[in-house]
Amino acid sequence: MTSIAKQIGTNWFTVVMGVGIMGGLTYTSPLTFPFDKQIGMIAFIAGTILLVVALGLWTSRWIMHTQEALQDFSDPTRALFYGALAMAVNVIGNDFFLVGTHMIPYSMALHLSQGLWIAGVFISLFSVITIPYLMFTQHDISSEDAVGSWLIPVVPPIVAAADGANILPFWGSKSLDMGMTAFDISLFGMTFFLFIMVSALFYTRLMYHKIVPGHLAPSIWIEIGPIGMAMGTLATIPLTAHTFLPTFIPGLRAVGLIGATALWGVGVWWSIIATLYSIMHLSKRGEGIPYSLGWWSYVFPLGSFTAGTYALYHLTDLKLFFIAAFIQLLVLAGCFVVVALGTLKGIVDGTLLAWHPHHHKGIREVKAS
């Protein structure tokens, strides 16, 4: 157990993110299909268990291997994944609202969702402040090093905003609900503008430097994650804030409609670019895409974009987004199965997690980036 705990960095929370968002999206799919609720519940339970196990092992790492845990902050790659810890907490918290309220007593699930949301916000703020500061002042990086993974530490506040938008009417009083709405919008703004800045750096790197190597190709998909969460925030607030902000709802609906639809267009464009990039690396021209935990970038970002499409459909009731949401869910399910099986295989054969003493010898370190 000690040897396993030593290997559990924050990159493992990407698994929790992927399983968690799959549960929520399956359970709330606009188009119902056989066993959708059951699959959603199973994924929600699995995600919750994975979060508890990952938090336990990660905490043990801090207690028993403090020096290694501290060294994560000095590594330009490992430090980024503190954002994954924040997002994992928020995703499971959101699942307690979307799925858990139908499985356990409603008030218990709601309070758990709110508690996890608050915890996720604190970790999100730690990530979005601490990691960029370290990148500015301590990490040895250049413009050619820019990758989609640079978004990971700055994305959590907008994930918290999108998830928080669902529970805005449940804080107990009109004034508190209004205050939470203002705070939620500020979280959205914090990430949205940082997302634009980081995306500009990544776009520049793609334009002026050599092709992103195969092992980093999955990170290109991360771009559509914050796009989806931004869509979710803009489209959901008009639907959940109508009871305590009635005079603002027409304006919020207009902003949500225009903003989320425009972002959906950008997300579709980036999805096509990322797909072409992946195909290129799988062709003779590319380097291949070796399996790593980075493959979860094919799951959570696409899940975020799908969640944004769900929200846009609920706001507009347009068949376009109804159909698009289901198609995205099908693609996501395919990616999820492939990536989850790859992770299980990597744990068993020791390429991702050396769980047997004899596995440690000669096992190569696989970076999740």
Rank of each mutant, 00 (worst) to 15 (best):
S3D: 12
I4M: 01
Q7C: 09
I8V: 06
G9C: 00
N11D: 11
M17F: 03
M22S: 05
G24M: 05
Y27I: 06
L31Y: 01
L31G: 01
F35G: 12
F35I: 12
M41N: 11
A43S: 05
I45W: 15
I45T: 14
L51E: 05
V52G: 11
V53D: 13
V53M: 06
L55G: 11
L57P: 03
W58P: 01
R61H: 04
R61A: 03
M64F: 11
H65I: 09
L70R: 13
Q71M: 11
F73C: 07
R78P: 04
R78L: 13
L80V: 07
G83W: 07
L85P: 03
A86R: 06
A88Y: 05
V89A: 10
V89H: 09
V91Q: 10
V91S: 09
I92G: 03
I92K: 04
D95E: 15
V99F: 02
M103E: 11
A109S: 04
W117D: 02
I118D: 08
V128C: 12
I131G: 04
P132A: 12
E144N: 11
W150Q: 02
L151K: 03
I158W: 00
A162P: 03
A165R: 06
P169R: 11
W171S: 04
G172R: 01
S175G: 02
M178G: 07
T181C: 10
A182Y: 15
S186N: 14
L187W: 10
G189Q: 12
G189H: 10
M190L: 15
F193H: 15
L194P: 05
A200I: 06
Y208Q: 08
H209P: 03
A217F: 00
I222H: 00
G225I: 04
G225Q: 06
P226I: 08
M229K: 00
G232E: 05
T236D: 04
L252C: 15
G256Y: 07
A260R: 08
W269T: 09
W269C: 07
A274L: 08
I279C: 07
H281R: 11
R285V: 09
P290I: 09
L293G: 12
S297Y: 11
F305D: 00
T309C: 01
L318G: 01
K319E: 06
F321D: 06
I323A: 04
A324G: 10
L330D: 09
V331M: 13
A333L: 14
C335D: 14
A340S: 15
L341S: 15
T343G: 08
G350V: 01
G350M: 03
G350R: 02
L352G: 04
L353T: 04
L353E: 01
E365Y: 15
